[in-house]
Amino acid sequence: MVGLGPADVPPSAAVKFVGAGAAACIADLFTFPLDTAKVRLQIQGEAKASAAAKGSAVKYRGVFGTITTMVRTEGPRSLYSGLVAGLQRQMSFASVRIGLYDSVKQFYTKGSDHVGIGSRLLAGCTTGAMAVAFAQPTDVVKVRFQAQARSSGHARRYCSTIDAYKTIAKEEGIRGLWKGTAPNIARNAIVNCTELVTYDFIKDMLLQSTPLTAMSSIVLLP
């Protein structure tokens, strides 16, 4: 009797949800130092005026120059400052942004096999906005950790991830954990549409123009 083999059974929404978050966490482990360097370069402009007034030179120059400076002045561990919050962010953010994309797309198309560009774009915007609204506190804490220096000349404001959540909520209110939500939603809605919709189209084109679809339907009988 011909039936669906294990490879022919589509993954459930839960599998996609967890798989997307786990994959994003693995990627974050490798790219976190680059993200930390990016944050340091972004916030350097805030202190540029005061540094110029004191006659101090610019501390960070370029991505790899920033990484080298941080390792020399703060130690290698500084490159992974905020990693726990970063993994929390990826597990919650990517799970919603990527893992729920197909489910939301099917919701908008009401299960139809024909999916237009409008439905794909709408699904990308929706999951991108949902992910930011859900995971913004983890993003705020991650960036705060990446921004604070570990050198002895600077007092560390946050001792741990939990302490950062508590301190921000206590000093800035619960709304402080959702600072920057609006621009982040706008940014990630665009990114999500660009990434996932492009991936979706390329995947469909490959399946239609290659024998992958025909091969996947072949079931070997004993």
Rank of each mutant, 00 (worst) to 15 (best):
M1E: 11
M1H: 07
G3F: 03
G5W: 02
G5T: 15
P6H: 14
D8V: 11
P11L: 14
P11N: 14
S12D: 11
S12L: 04
A13F: 12
V15T: 12
V15H: 08
G19N: 04
A20I: 10
G21V: 02
G21D: 07
A22R: 02
A22T: 14
A24I: 09
A24D: 11
A24F: 06
C25H: 05
C25T: 07
I26A: 13
A27S: 10
D28F: 04
D28A: 13
T31G: 03
L34M: 09
D35H: 12
V39Q: 02
R40M: 07
L41F: 02
Q42C: 08
Q44L: 00
G45E: 07
G45M: 02
A47G: 09
K54C: 00
K54H: 05
K54G: 09
S56T: 04
Y60N: 09
R61K: 15
G62L: 01
V63H: 01
V63I: 13
G65C: 01
T66D: 08
I67D: 03
T69Q: 03
T69S: 06
R77C: 05
R77L: 07
S78L: 07
S78N: 11
L79A: 10
L79N: 08
L79R: 13
Y80C: 13
S81F: 00
V84Q: 09
G86S: 14
G86H: 09
R89G: 06
S92M: 09
S95D: 06
V96Y: 04
R97P: 00
G99T: 06
Y101H: 12
D102M: 08
S103M: 08
K105C: 09
K110L: 14
G111W: 05
G111N: 09
I117N: 10
R120P: 00
R120Q: 07
L122S: 10
A123P: 07
T127V: 15
V132Q: 09
V132C: 05
A133R: 13
F134P: 01
Q136T: 15
P137C: 15
P137F: 14
D139S: 15
V140K: 03
V140W: 04
V140E: 09
V143E: 03
F145L: 05
Q146S: 13
Q148A: 05
S152I: 08
H154T: 03
H154V: 02
H154G: 00
R157N: 07
R157A: 04
R157E: 13
Y158P: 00
C159G: 11
S160L: 01
I162L: 15
D163S: 12
D163R: 05
D163F: 08
A164S: 07
Y165V: 07
K170D: 05
E172P: 00
I174Y: 11
R175N: 10
G176R: 11
K179I: 08
A182I: 13
P183N: 14
I185K: 06
I185P: 00
A186Q: 03
A186L: 13
A186V: 14
R187D: 15
C193Y: 02
T198C: 04
T198K: 01
D200L: 06
I202M: 05
K203F: 00
M205R: 07
L206K: 03
L206I: 14
L207G: 11
L207F: 08
S209Q: 12
T210I: 01
T210E: 04
L212I: 09
A214E: 10
A214D: 11
S216R: 09
S217F: 05
I218G: 01
L220M: 06
P222M: 12
